Computed example of a mutant assay.
Amino acid sequence: MNRFENKVAIVTGGASGIGAAVCRRIVAEGGKVAVADVSGDRAEVLAKELGPAGFAVQFDAAEASSIEKMVEATVQHFGRLDVLHNNAADVSAPIQMGDTTAVDIDIAIWDRVMQVNLRGYLLGCKYAIPHIIRSGGGSIVNTASGAGARGDLVRIAYGVSKGAIYTLTKYVAAQYAHQGVRCNAVAPGLVMTPALEGSPPGMMEILKRHTLLEFGKPEDIAALVTFLASGEAAYITGQVYGIDGGLLMHNPMHADLKDYMEQAAAAHAAA
């Protein structure tokens, strides 16, 4: 397929994980992509791998001027913009360790998460949409999270920021549909990244018990992102798609009930 032939995309947080998988998929389908990341070195490595279709941009998702320059540099380099994938997030260890509960969180941690995860997405839309309109229309895909659709014991700032992305997506879709800009979001569940692999002992086993399918791979998320960004999704806007292996669709007691029924069946068979 060449769904992105003659199309240009920006992928923020594009140098690793889901973002890198999206970049590779877009280029494999004929597109050109700006690999935008806080790590310029990592962005350069991936852009070199992608060849002439890749362009590395170092940027800071917490700074409005940096986001604006990222968009302008991409348009100057490739001549147009058709797709924005807002995917950057601050998942550094100090932020994750400090993102706790409503009472205990340091407000500086809260502000930093909102600045990068939410304000950064808004600014991406702000600066990208005029260029997308000039190119004849296109697509924005935001990375939300299942954490935005449920409560949890920790990471209150992350969850609230991702929940707000659900609403941001709908507002952007409503405001720019008539100018040819679609906006959707994906809400990944557990994806095999270095962060997940580095979970404390026993944590992955707990998470696995409540996931109906295997843990996802970055390529699984990239498949949905690129579908929503492509012309195949031309009649879809303002939607948030869960892609979590069934984590949030079942009875919250599913894993325990499954064990109970299996034990009961085994006891009945032995009787």
Score class of each variant (00 low, 15 high):
N2Q: 14
N2Y: 11
N2E: 15
N2W: 11
N2H: 12
E5L: 15
K7M: 09
A9T: 01
I10C: 00
I10D: 00
A15E: 06
G19I: 00
A20S: 05
R25E: 05
A28R: 11
G30E: 06
V38N: 13
G40Q: 11
G40C: 03
A43K: 03
V45T: 14
V45F: 08
L46H: 07
L46C: 07
A47Y: 02
E49S: 13
G51S: 06
P52Y: 10
P52H: 08
G54H: 02
E68H: 13
M70Q: 05
V71A: 08
A73M: 11
Q76P: 04
H77C: 13
R80I: 03
L81R: 02
V83K: 02
A88V: 13
S92D: 11
S92P: 07
S92H: 13
I95T: 10
I95M: 07
Q96M: 15
G98E: 01
D99E: 09
D99K: 06
T101C: 15
A102I: 14
A102S: 15
V103S: 14
D104I: 07
I105K: 10
N117C: 05
G120C: 10
Y121W: 12
G124E: 04
Y127K: 12
A128I: 02
A128M: 07
A128T: 03
P130K: 12
P130H: 11
I133W: 05
R134E: 11
S135Q: 07
G137R: 05
S139C: 10
V141N: 01
N142S: 06
A144F: 02
S145Q: 05
S145C: 11
A147T: 08
A147W: 01
G163R: 03
A164N: 09
T169Y: 08
K170Q: 15
Y171D: 13
A174K: 15
R182W: 04
R182S: 02
R182Q: 08
C183Q: 05
E197H: 10
G202I: 09
I206T: 14
K208M: 10
R209Q: 14
E219I: 02
E219M: 03
I221R: 00
I221E: 06
A222K: 01
A223H: 06
A223W: 02
A223F: 03
A229S: 09
A229T: 00
A233R: 10
A234E: 15
Y235Q: 06
G238C: 07
G238F: 03
G245C: 08
L247W: 05
M249W: 00
P252V: 07
A255L: 07
L257H: 11
K258G: 09
Y260M: 13
M261P: 06
E262V: 11
Q263E: 14
Q263F: 10
A265Q: 12
A265C: 04
A267E: 12
A270D: 09
